[in-house]
């Protein structure tokens, strides 16, 4: 049976070093939807990305995450990737000595194995590399090097999108993919994402700024504050945030919190 939601997060709580960061987060994403998660520093955006991809920095203490009907929290990071989750890292890692070609070939073939497919032949793989390189406008000089080694900030972000193009995920998490990019790089990266997307590809854009959302237009915008989504709306919410900042949200949320606590007493 096909579930309606690709991703369903219910009452998620997670801590880092015994400090609770996510305090009951709910989010539902249908196939093909684009959600933006915005929020001030320290609100839990990166923790959410870590929890979704299975990084052990954060410990989930309560709640459930269902991906395509399966319990995501039971899966290792590599299983999640094979199921179709992709994270574009805020800070992509340099891995000297591991070539981009070998990295991508291994990743693709591991994912194919997971789906019961034969490994790609060398020529099919190279054809795929060539196609995707053109799609995201990444220089061959970069893909012939070691993973991210000596890449500029913008090249690293572009390389994340190239990997996304190669792996064709069902859910892409873009963690501050726009930070540190000049406007040209931002446009290339954003257009890359739009070109890669199939109608049923879902995207969660985690960002501080509205800028990226001019290119990747969200269906929903959520404001994450103090470990919870405190407000959701359409694309216009991002514009409001850009204009008014986060203070009014904070105030509103803190009031709600107080009221709630008082009520409980």
């Amino acid at each position: 049976m096909q579930t309606e939601f690709l991703l369903q997060i219910k009452d998620l709580k997670a801590s880092i070093d015994n400090k609770e960061i996510l305090k009951g987060l709910n989010l539902e994403v249908k196939p093909g939807e684009i959600h933006a998660i915005m929020g001030p520093n320290g609100s839990g955006k990166s923790t959410l990305a870590n929890v979704l991809t299975g990084r052990e920095i954060a410990t989930v203490t309560a709640g459930t995450i269902t991906f395509d009907g399966k319990n995501l929290l039971d899966m290792s990071p590599e299983e999640r990737a094979c199921e179709g989750i992709f994270l574009s890292f805020q800070y992509p890692i340099e891995i000297p000595g591991v070539s981009m070609v070998n990295f991508m070939k291994t990743a693709i073939n591991e994912q194919r194995k997971h789906r019961g497919l034969e490994p790609l032949s060398a020529s099919d793989f190279l054809r795929l590399m060539r196609e995707k390189k053109e799609l995201v406008e990444i220089d061959s000089a970069l893909t012939n090097r070691s993973v991210n080694e000596g890449f500029s900030g913008g090249e690293k972000k572009k390389n994340e999108i190239f990997q996304m193009a190669m792996l064709e995920p069902r859910l892409a998490l873009l963690d501050e993919t726009d930070s540190g990019l000049d406007i040209d790089a931002l446009r290339i990266v954003a257009n890359g994402v739009n070109k890669i997307r199939r109608p049923d590809t879902s995207v969660i854009v985690i960002t501080h700024y509205q800028r990226l959302l001019d290119y990747i237009v969200p269906d929903f915008v959520h404001v994450l504050y103090d470990g919870r989504i405190v407000r959701s709306g359409g694309p216009e919410l991002a514009l409001t945030l850009e204009e008014r900042g986060y203070d009014w949200i904070k105030k509103e949320a803190d009031v709600t919190e107080e009221t709630w606590t008082t009520d409980r007493k």
């Binding site: 299975g54 990071p77 590599e78 999640r80 890292f89 990743a107 997971h114």
Partner: peptide, 15 residues
């Protein structure tokens, strides 16, 4: 490097 290890795993490569 734990960060590098996670990066590779996050692309579907087993540990």
């Amino acid at each position: 490097d734990e960060n590098a290890l996670f990066y590779l795993r996050s692309r579907g490569i087993d540990e």
